[in-house]
Amino acid sequence: MNCLCMTRRRALGLAALAALSATGLLAACGDKDQQQAQLAPVEIDRGTSCELDGMLLADYPGPKAQVVFAGQDKPSFFCDTVEFFNTMLAGEQVRAVRAAWVQDMGQAKWEEPQGHWIDAKGAFYVLGSKRHGSMGPTIASFAQEADATKFAGEYGGKVLRYADVKPDMVDLSGGALHDTRM
């Protein structure tokens, strides 16, 4: 009987410990979810510059991107989605990404895009269209597949998902050749 009581006490103690641990884990998960919820895209202004080349985003047409890397409170901006993908897909990219956004060009004006930030990994992209961004040919980003398909029908290109964009599709060489404002 004494042995059975010890087993029962031990089981109750382990159950209580497990409950406390689970509560702690849930609280920790809640903190992480709360931190993620606090991450939000930041609107560009006249002084917002590109992470890679210092170009002012507001001076150029086409979709922009922003990324919050681990250890950063503020996002790094990209004046073009090709630069964004080139950075994200680079083999030497070792910075952990907390959040990444691109602009929904189904809603934003191409010539002066403002707002309409969407999660980069959930977006639809059009590669190979006739529309140019800050670095020449760019990759248009959309929240809705229907908008991407419509854009591709009008300007050419192929609709892709984030995971379908490969490093050889985002070559930065020659981008300055298309910049008439430098």
Rank of each mutant, 00 (worst) to 15 (best):
L39S: 03
A40W: 00
P41H: 05
E43D: 15
D45M: 00
S49M: 04
S49H: 01
S49F: 03
C50F: 05
L52R: 15
D53K: 08
D53S: 09
D53A: 07
M55V: 12
L56A: 14
L57K: 03
A58F: 04
A58K: 07
Y60P: 00
P61R: 05
P63M: 12
P63G: 06
P63T: 05
K64P: 05
A65R: 11
Q66K: 05
Q66I: 05
V67R: 06
V67C: 12
V67I: 15
F69S: 01
G71C: 12
G71P: 10
G71L: 05
K74L: 13
F77Y: 15
F78E: 07
C79G: 14
V82S: 00
T87Y: 02
T87K: 07
M88N: 13
M88R: 14
L89N: 08
G91F: 06
G91A: 09
G91D: 15
V94I: 06
R95E: 11
R95P: 01
A96P: 04
V97I: 15
R98E: 13
A99S: 15
A100H: 01
D104P: 10
A108W: 00
G115N: 11
G115M: 04
G115I: 08
W117V: 09
A120E: 03
G122D: 14
G122M: 07
A123N: 00
A123I: 00
V126T: 11
V126C: 11
L127Q: 09
L127M: 09
G128R: 06
G128T: 13
S129R: 07
G133F: 05
